[in-house]
Design a protein around this nucleic acid. Structure first.
Lengths: 224, 224
DNA sequence: CTGCTTTTTCAGAGATGTTTCAGCCGCTGG
DNA sequence: CCAGCGGCTGAAACATCTCTGAAAAAGCAG
């Protein structure tokens, strides 16, 4: 579970980082809005936490920009500005929650959980069609049978299922699963899609991974 | 868009109802937690707004119960209890947002929008006539059927639809889709317009790509 | 170290999208 | 009425992308 913190107050940023890492999140920190927007737009994070007042690009602008680029990662806005007007502006800019400083650590964690829960990550099975993916054990199953997935197979499958009908670009999938420092190529994605198609068929799933040339993939329930 | 309000203060409930109906939502109101939980569990609502302190069953219990029954409708908690402890408890019980009374109407609406936005109800489509172009999946569809487009077909179609009735010059289209450096000719555009006309007809679209001599094209809805 | 699983790499086959081109059609203007 | 231009279309050639199977490499547990 990856979280990006965009916060210019280094002290606060660090304490947040420590807190979240303690809770088992993978955390990255950047110190201004411009970097923030750039990182956030990769779409590899599960949550963005950002300050409103920052150098170069304010939180509202970052949120707007990120949303304009069709990135749907939940945004938690964190700020000293507590006026109603500010809260409204933040929410309308694309934030999902507005928390006023000073805030309690436990409250922050509760918010994060609420946001991630909604993201559908907190559930322990994803279902689509006649098929279920057990998030705790890397097992893919239908009524009639089930099969183990390797970690990478699982990662790819999870993303595909999370998109429920919409299509995913191959390069996005690549960066989400392999990270962007990796030297894996899109052919790796193709290989894993191949593995998954085989396994889906072997358990009699009604799911089909359609490919869309020059775009990516699309998980589909095929009517019998 | 259906909203359920669970609130025992009839005055407040009514003013909320009026406000939301004015904004075009379909609103139902119940006055205690027991009814609230029962209604909410049907899962037909797009959003639940509930008070914390209520007769029979408190807001936290309602939230917990609803979530236990695997209903994922977003919950907005509305309450006079503003203590950190309360907010944490609310969020942990399954709420998605915690708003403290008294609140501003505009802020409430901003929250509601944020929650519904996340609900994934916003899809990326361009519409014109009876026809929709799915921007994420290169799919062109009408009520009765749909068909996949290739990337270039999609690019051309998107431009045509974006111009909504105004006409586009062929050379502009050429540059927009193939880029400056390309050695494609206007005949390429013509070829793709041909492909698109075929596909539009095949799905029973009421859109027609008219050509305008020496100028370019023009997307038109043709009345039956 | 050994044997097993997972992940990566690679190259050829196959599928699909794109471009090209020639011929046809119809409009336009002399 | 006819020549000429712009626009349309189908077929073929071409260019790319995607898939696949096999093999190499990397991890991992015993």
């Amino acid at each position: 579970m990856k979280i990006l913190i965009i916060e210019d107050d280094k002290l606060l940023a660090e304490s947040l980082q420590t807190l979240l890492e303690l809770k088992g999140f993978e955390v990255e920190v950047v110190y201004d809005g411009e970097d923030g927007a750039e990182y956030a737009e990769t779409g590899v994070y599960d949550l963005l936490i950002m300050d409103v007042m920052m150098p170069k690009l304010g939180g509202y602008q970052v949120a707007r920009q990120v949303r304009t680029h069709r990135v749907t990662t939940p945004i938690l806005m964190l700020t000293a500005k507590g006026e109603v007007q500010d809260r409204i502006e933040g929410l309308n800019a694309g934030a999902d929650y507005y928390l006023t400083k000073p805030f309690d650590n436990m409250e922050l964690l509760a918010c994060i959980n609420a946001l991630l829960r909604r993201q559908g990550d907190q559930v322990d099975v994803l279902r689509y069609g006649n098929t279920a993916l057990d998030l705790t054990g890397y097992v893919l199953s239908t009524e009639e049978s089930s099969i183990r997935l390797s970690k990478k197979e699982f990662d790819v499958m999870r993303r595909l299922m999370q998109y429920q009908g919409r299509s995913i670009r191959k390069d996005v999938l690549l960066v989400q699963v392999w990270g962007y420092e990796s030297n894996a190529t899109e052919n790796n994605v193709e290989a894993y899609v191949g593995f998954l198609r085989k396994k889906l068929k072997s358990i009699g799933s009604d799911l089909r991974i359609e490919s869309i040339r020059l775009l990516g993939y699309h998980l589909e329930v095929v009517k019998p």
